[in-house]
């Protein structure tokens, strides 16, 4: 669980930032940074579930597509899945970060296609896998919240090819 000063400061600021009705680049960056920070965790630890819940709408759905099946989850199901993976030792730590993003806003709805990569550690020179998290954000109770997270864990993905298709709404990750 990453509870160091950076995240603590960041998450304290997050509520104020996301409370604004007009999301700007800074607000979206803060939300996405917090999202990747809370799902990442060191050995002997686990995701920061409380902070993660604060980023999601209580109506949020999480959908994971794999070659074998599709998981349709609420946040509590996602927590149970991660805890199962931790218990059986399928993963013992997890580091994921954003490497590129394209966004569209339609009033009180934002769609963010967030390219990610996972690594065995923050300092690893190679990544384990890359893909795209598809997130929908809505205004809820005065804040921007994630209402849907969806990704295909096994989709072939080329960052350079994806970036070459970006037009207008695309923007690089921080």
């Amino acid at each position: 669980m990453q509870t160091g000063p950076t995240l603590a400061t960041h998450t304290q600021d997050l509520e104020a930032i996301l409370g604004s009705a007009q999301p700007d680049q800074h607000q979206l960056d803060a939300l996405m940074r917090a999202f990747y920070e809370v799902i990442s965790f060191e050995e002997e630890s686990a995701p920061d579930w409380d902070t993660m819940a604060s980023l999601f709408s209580k109506h949020a759905r999480i959908t994971r597509v794999t070659p074998e099946a599709t998981d349709h989850m609420e946040l509590s199901d996602f927590k149970n899945m991660v805890e199962e993976l931790l218990e059986v030792g399928a993963v013992t730590s997890f580091f994921e970060r954003e490497i590129a993003r394209r966004t569209d806003r339609f009033g009180n709805v934002i769609h963010a296609a967030s390219a990610y990569e996972t690594r065995v550690s923050p300092t690893a020179v190679d990544f384990i896998e890359r893909g795209v998290n598809s997130l929908q954000l809505i205004r809820e109770d005065g804040s921007w919240k994630i209402v849907s997270l969806c990704w295909d864990s096994d989709a072939p993905f080329s960052l350079s090819a994806w970036q070459s298709t970006m037009q207008g709404g695309g923007n690089g990750a921080n």
């Binding site: 190679d126 072939p156 080329s158 350079s160 298709t165």
Partner: peptide, 15 residues
């Protein structure tokens, strides 16, 4: 590994 090309399938899908 760093020099190895990424999967290129996305280029097809993206087009």
């Amino acid at each position: 590994a760093i020099l190895q090309p990424e999967a290129e399938s996305y280029a097809t899908v993206g087009a």
